[in-house]
Write a protein that binds this DNA or RNA. Structure first.
Lengths: 148, 148
DNA sequence: TAATTTAATTGATAAAGTCAACTATATGAG
DNA sequence: CTCATATAGTTGACTTTATCAATTAAATTA
């Protein structure tokens, strides 16, 4: 008989693995040489007005150095470009290029489709409840980890 | 305004990251040169009677080759040992050594403490509901990914 | 203006994941 | 039984992701 908290951990691990696998399959289908990590970056840049590298590191919980390199890669692939930040010469705003936006949108549509199918037999109410409880636990976790 | 399915994905990502961070902190505190990955392996071996490498790969959703190497590392650290599988000469049962068990138990206690704190303000009923909905979605995800 | 933060980059390295080829044993059809 | 096929585990070669410290240049603040 499993302790319910352990089941919680297992649920998160397996779900994340499953989401990564489905995202990889999507990318293979579309012949994009990307990964779930890059999708997360593209999504964050897409969703964030005036997204800086620093913000990106924070939002995705990745090392700043790693972000520098990942952004460089996306620029080489022509997906992302930098705009000067008029208020701070040290930093730049990241934005999707036209091609980056196209790429993101393709992936986002497929991603949404997976998520939709994943919650197919889950009602709106249930989903809301799930998110509420999940976010409550996430808050607690952040507190535990000493996040401001 | 976020599409609720996206929030779902974000919830999973941030929670997993948070769990990894807290597990890393635990390991640093205890001066163990391990990682969340190793904890997952130790736990699976601990919880599984007659755990084979193959089962371990399946349960943790890792590559078999990777498992071979991770197990080798744990054996070198004296945490795990192999027993011959009397029914199949190709395979062996993995089990924790005394030291491996001690190590696992330390981590498991700390891990349980984190999970408990994480759900501190979540009632048993809420947790049950959360797990039910989560498992339903995980099932769907497995179907999407073509898992038997 | 000098001292201290902060944004981003770089270097070096380690950890984790991927994929295909291979060995040894098992299994199942004929 | 035996031969083809499947399975458990290992190995090699490689890529991707993560970590962590040091550095540069601009911003902040004392």
């Amino acid at each position: 008989m499993a302790i319910p908290e352990s089941e919680l951990q297992a649920l998160f691990m397996h779900t994340i693995t499953g989401l990564k696998i489905s995202m990889k399959n999507i990318m293979k289908d579309k012949a994009l040489s990307l990964s779930p990590l890059y999708f997360m970056l593209l999504k964050t840049i897409h969703d964030t007005e005036n997204c800086t590298a620093n913000y990106l590191a924070d939002a995705t919980e990745r090392d700043k150095g790693q972000i520098t390199r990942l952004v460089k890669e996306m620029m080489q692939q022509g997906l992302v470009q930098k705009q000067p930040n008029p208020h701070d010469k040290r930093s730049q705003f990241l934005q999707l290029t036209e091609s980056g936006l196209g790429c993101f949108e393709q992936l986002a549509i497929a991603d949404q489709a997976v998520l939709k199918e994943m919650r197919a037999n889950v009602s709106d109410d249930e989903l809301t409840t799930f998110l509420e409880i999940g976010n409550k636990m996430l808050q607690n976790l952040h507190k535990i980890n000493g996040k401001p």
